[in-house]
Design a protein around this nucleic acid. Structure first.
Length: 1114
RNA sequence: GCGCGGGUGGCUUAGUCGGUUAGAGCACCCGGCUGAUAACCGGGAGGUCGCAGGUUCAAGUCCUGCCUCGCGCACCA
């Protein structure tokens, strides 16, 4: 860097608005970003970016609250990038976009973390430890990784207010949740029930369907075919189960009344291939569905009888485990029952029924009056009295014991067949629900629970879902819609400690009261105290958690004592309340809430479909009778570079900091957004981040550096001496037009959620159009030390293009573009307007409705000129064609050609100089006689030809393509139609291609013109040499070598040298060319020694086209 | 089992209404160009567009079946 530049670089940045930019230094992206973070903090740029849009229409974003008791990973960075980019974009569009942070702080994940740490692996252990102490530990544990989250969030530049977040454990938040529950209670949507629910013995709690959905895993387990011996008959009924542990609880067998069953007699002993335990004796008789005989039986049998299931109903059989279930006053226990849901798709067509451990079993049991008795305790072990060998053991560990008990002769009750009660065992692979936190298999278990009657509002759910704009749409219609159509009542209570307590008090006789606020609680407590029920104090700031709230006893309307139902809420209920609880609705902030419900935009991973996306809608539907959000972006899963799911156990988690500290957050974010559609699964390839950095950001920086360095040197003032666009050279007008086109497409893609397409196109513009063509072609324009119109045009153009590019990039990658924008304008890009317009700032605009025309008028984009863009595309094609010609003709690039001809196409005279320079041609000419260098080729146009030619289209096409004399054929066609193989071919049936004639150093390019039609333009180069050309070519080769040597010697740009040149077998150098070498290489002295002189030892040497050149630089 | 979304050179991907030569980037090889950046330009090699049928003059594209990956669903007893 020369002196002048370094002086400029050291100039203080303060107090400048539209002064000349500082020179740009070398890029250190990480340093640049961390410096900017400080600056944003100091200047409160985030807050300012909101404040400057204070009068804009609000655009409401709702943050899905993360849990801060786990480390943030790269998938969180992805989600936060999409949240951030939409908010930033909308803000730039002039909307007021406030972004409140949030934390999810209740629930199982927290409790389990604490349980592990304190070694409290059962509910008893927790209660022995003390619920208050335990919850205190939870309250603290919640913030374990808050700092890590904060650092990640700030470093990646996710702008969200973390200083005033909503926190689900706050009293205000809990109070709002209570209020919501009371609304449901009052509408009759909240009820207490006894149902079979998936239950985790380790965490001691049941789960709702959306939690169960999180934990399906494929497992292989023993399934068993069991003989149920009829009491009044020697035959046994076969039934199948995959859960042997439910067999002691068996109290019934269900058959399909319309299903055909058979009674079979075992004809001969089984073969040697018998696998596992079980068996049957010859002569023994079994009953099962006819359709399943082949599937089930492993013996040859005779069919003794055939009948419908209805005929079996009422038959009684011997209990498998006598005494495990007391019969009580049931008249139906251990008999055959009918159920229309019994099918013959698997099993035996007979369903073993254990009332307490299956949903259908339970319903059937209640209907038929079977005894409802638990054989399994809440900790997952068999209750005492089930069987001496099973009592107290964990049920899933008893499979083998149960199998061997059943296998013993005459069975467990001594009344079974001699061969035992087990017919067969079979390994069975199926998906089975597991605890999403502990991975333990869940047990279906009948228990008391609280439910929200979602089934009652199903129509509304579907309606409201239709109003949501989903991205992608198929998640809303398909996956989410499917879920809603099958909606079940929401089991919201948890037998746990750390969560929003269920605010329902209940008396012995079943009177209930739901409390909806602290004030109400105080009043109820006071009433109870007045009636003589002792109660602790209930101050205004009473902690709305267990065990405090458990301590309050209320008074029922009939005067009974009421105790709180000892449950906490599903923590998904908490986050489902976020849209209003974040504002402590309805107790505070009425205006804010009214203005921000429903919210405009939420965005989370697709795994939240059954999670947050659902609970938000579930709560808003039941409480407000409204949808909670208008737009929902559902993101695809993050996979590793191999396409595997990222998980701790696989060890393939990508740490975002690896990239923040190497390529920076800009490159990381831009990579993630351009890697694919947001909703598609993304293979995160660390190398892709590096590539993005090298291509997009390094290139952008160097374009900027090129501009800023010269702008600083020249004291360029973007507000002074502007050159009107119309007066600028075509190259400038071209890049501005491209910018306009690209920016409009970019905006269009944003609107359609196609952020990846937008980003890819813009990157292509920056790398290809801006850097590799505009800047490359403009470099010499800025070298000019004198002030000139041309130079100023270039500077203004660069300035304008860079500004707009910065603004377009800013929502996606907010760092580097801010640095650039600040240096160019003195203001942050994050307070700048969106180039495609600022609808949010329009009078009367709302987040989803504004005056399109007025919005367009606020755009700050240059006008587009499709014709100029098409022309430049052609020029670039021709430049590339020229290189191809030289390679084919074996003529090096630095050796000039005397002339080049452009054949056909539009007038390119404006670009002749540019082309001459690119192509290294002395004179560009236009050849008007097309036939001199071009010939015609005809290509069939199938779309037009096919309907006429029908099945002969291929032959006709071939005939057109291979016509002996295409010119003559074309003439005939144009003269009104030519007969080809019986088909009249007209002008519209063929495409005319003009290609170069063989024998010339020529290439033809095909480009679309502004109207989309094809242009065929040829370039021809004169490949003849002359002494003058050889001299010029050599001068360029020498110059290039000397420049390389200067660079190798690390000389200052302005340093002068002494150059001496010796040539062997060289061309005769012209004086002008020698002078040109001297000027280009900044020679103080320059000597070309005559042919035959001897160069000194150590001179640089190179060869070109048979000439050996030696030179020294001093 | 049912539903959704994928499968295009070694990798990442584009591909419109079906139109005859499937386009790009990375990596690789050869050459060129460069006071131009981790670059740029030209060329090369590398594709039975998951498989098999079908519709059609014509299929990566439409239809059917199958395979395979991912995700989701669940009265799997």
């Amino acid at each position: 860097m020369n002196k002048k530049l370094s002086e400029v670089q050291n100039r203080s940045p303060g107090g400048r608005s539209m002064a000349p930019p500082k020179a740009a230094g070398e890029l250190n992206a990480v340093q640049l970003e961390t410096d900017l973070l400080k600056r944003w903090a100091d200047e409160k740029t985030f807050q300012t970016s909101i404040d400057v849009r204070r009068n804009g229409a609000p655009f409401i974003f709702l943050e899905g609250p993360p849990t801060a008791n786990g480390k943030p990973g790269i998938h969180h960075v992805v989600a936060r990038t999409y949240k951030d980019l939409v908010c930033r974009w909308k803000a730039m569009e002039g909307f007021l976009v406030e972004r409140k942070g949030g934390w999810d702080t209740h629930g199982l994940p927290v409790e389990i973390e604490v349980q592990k740490r304190l070694d409290l692996m059962s509910n008893e252990a927790i209660e022995a430890f003390g619920m208050a102490e335990f919850n205190q530990a939870c309250r603290e544990s919640v913030w374990t990784y808050e700092a890590a989250w904060r650092e990640m969030t700030e470093r990646m530049a996710y702008w969200v207010d973390l200083d005033n977040p909503y926190v689900t454990l706050d009293n205000d938040y809990v109070e709002s949740a209570w209020w919501a529950l009371k609304q449901m209670f009052d509408k009759g949507l909240l009820y207490r029930g006894h149902k079979v629910l998936p239950f985790c013995p380790q965490t001691g709690t049941s789960y709702s369907s959306h939690e169960v959905a999180l934990g399906y895993k494929e497992v292989e387990e023993p399934s068993v075919y069991v003989k149920f011996k009829l009491t009044d008959d020697d035959a046994s009924i076969l039934a199948w189960t995959t859960t042997p542990w439910t067999l002691p609880g068996n109290v019934g067998l269900a058959v399909g009344p319309e299903v055909t069953y058979v009674r079979c007699r075992i004809k001969e002993a089984a073969g040697e291939h018998w696998e596992g335990a079980g068996g049957a004796d010859v002569g023994e008789e079994v009953i099962l569905a006819k359709d399943l005989m082949k599937e089930v039986l492993r013996h040859h049998v005779d069919i003794v009888d055939e009948f419908l299931g209805a005929d079996l109903v009422g038959r009684s059989y011997e209990p498998l485990f006598p005494g495990a279930v007391p019969k009580g006053d049931s008249t139906t226990a251990w008999t055959v029952l009918e159920a229309d849901w019994v099918t013959t798709t698997d099993g035996t067509g007979v369903v073993h029924t254990a009332v307490m451990y299956g949903e259908d079993d339970y319903n059937l049991g209640m209907e038929a009056g079977l005894p409802a008795h638990h054989t399994v305790a809440m900790d997952g072990s068999f209750v005492t009295g089930t069987h001496p060998e099973l009592d107290g053991r964990y049920v899933k560990a008893c499979d083998e014991t149960i199998i061997s008990l059943l296998s013993s002769p005459k069975g467990t009750n001594g009344k079974g067949p001699e061969s035992g009660l087990l017919y067969r065992e079979k390994a069975y692979a199926h998906d089975y629900p597991h605890c999403w936190r502990t991975d333990h298999p869940l047990l279906y278990y009948a228990m008391d629970s609280w439910f929200v009657r979602m089934t009652a509002v199903k129509e509304n759910l579907l309606n409201f879902n239709d109003q949501v704009e989903w991205a992608p749409d198929w998640v809303g219609e398909g996956r989410f819609g499917e879920w809603l159509r099958n909606v079940k009542d929401w089991a919201i209570s948890r037998e746990r400690y750390w969560g929003t307590p269920l605010p329902v008090w209940r008396s012995e006789s079943g009177e209930m009261k739901c409390v909806g606020s602290i004030k109400e609680l105080q009043e109820e407590v006071a009433r109870a105290v007045a009636a003589g029920i002792a109660n602790p104090d209930c101050p205004d700031d009473v902690d709305l958690h267990r065990p405090i709230v458990d301590g309050f006893k209320l008074l029922s309307d009939s005067g009974e004592v009421m105790h709180r139902e000892p449950f906490v809420m599903d923590c998904w209920f908490d986050s489902g309340c976020a849209s209003f609880a974040q504002w402590h609705h309805p107790f505070e902030n009425e205006e804010v809430f009214n203005a921000s419900f429903p919210v405009d935009y939420i965005c989370e991973g697709v795994d939240q479909t059954r999670g947050w996306f659902y609970t938000l809608l579930a709560v808003s539907t039941t409480v407000f009778d409204q949808p909670a959000y208008k737009r929902c972006l559902s993101l695809g899963l993050i996979l590793d570079a191999e396409g595997k799911k990222m998980s701790k156990s696989r060890g393939n988690i990508v740490d975002p900091w690896d990239h923040f500290n190497r390529e920076g957050a800009d490159a990381t974010r831009w990579y993630m957004v351009t890697a694919g559609a947001p909703w598609n699964p993304m293979k995160f390839d660390p190398n892709g981040v590096r590539e993005t950095y090298a291509k997009m950001f390094l290139t952008l920086w160097n374009v900027y550096k090129f501009h800023a360095d010269y702008a600083a040197l020249d004291g360029f003032d973007p507000e002074a001496s502007t050159v009107p666009v119309a007066k600028r050279p075509a190259l400038d007008r071209w890049v501005l037009s491209r910018l306009g086109t690209v920016a409009n497409d970019y905006h269009e893609n944003f609107v359609n959620w196609q952020f990846h397409k937008a980003g890819r196109d813009l990157e292509d513009f920056v790398v290809n159009d801006l850097s590799n063509w505009y800047v490359r072609r403009s470099r010499r324009r800025l070298w000019d030390e004198a002030d000139s119109n041309d130079k100023r045009s270039c500077q203004h153009t660069l300035h304008e293009v860079l500004l707009t590019v910065c603004r377009l990039v800013a929502p996606v990658a907010p760092f580097m573009v801010d640095e650039i924008h600040r240096n160019l304008t003195g203001a942050s890009v994050h307070t700048a307007p969106w180039p495609a317009g600022v609808p949010g700032s329009l009078e009367g605009a709302t987040s989803d409705d504004w005056d399109e025309v007025a919005a367009k008028a606020t755009a700050t984009l240059p006008p587009t000129d499709p014709e100029l863009e098409a022309t430049m595309a052609l020029v670039r094609e021709l430049a590339e064609a020229g290189r191809r010609i030289r390679i084919d003709g074996n003529r090096r690039q630095r050796l000039p050609c005397a002339q080049g001809w452009i054949v056909a196409g539009p007038d390119l005279s404006e670009f002749h100089d540019l082309l001459a320079e690119e192509l290294n041609v002395e004179t560009m000419l236009v050849e008007n006689d097309l036939d001199r260098f071009q010939r015609i080729e005809l290509a069939p146009n199938f779309r037009a030809l096919a309907p006429k030619a029908r099945s002969t289209v291929n032959e006709v096409a071939q005939a057109i393509r291979t016509a002996e004399d295409p010119e003559a054929l074309l003439q005939a066609i144009n003269a009104g139609g030519a007969e080809v193989l019986g088909v009249t071919v007209e002008a519209s049936d063929v495409d005319v291609k003009r290609v170069e004639r063989p024998g010339f150093a020529a290439q033809t390019v095909e480009v679309p013109d502004a109207d989309g039609a094809s242009l065929h333009v040829s370039l021809v180069l004169d490949m003849n040499d002359s002494p003058a050309l050889l001299s010029k070519g050599m001068a360029r080769d020498i110059t290039r070598r000397v420049q390389a040597q200067r660079k190798a010697m690390d000389l200052e740009l302005e340093a002068t040298i002494d150059l001496e040149v010796w040539m062997v077998n060289g061309p005769t150098m012209e004086e002008a060319d020698e002078a040109w070498v001297a000027a280009e290489t900044r020679c103080a002295g320059c000597v070309f020694h005559p042919e035959g002189s001897t160069p000194p030892e150590g001179a640089e040497t190179f060869e070109v086209d048979g000439t050996t050149v030696h030179f020294t630089v001093a």
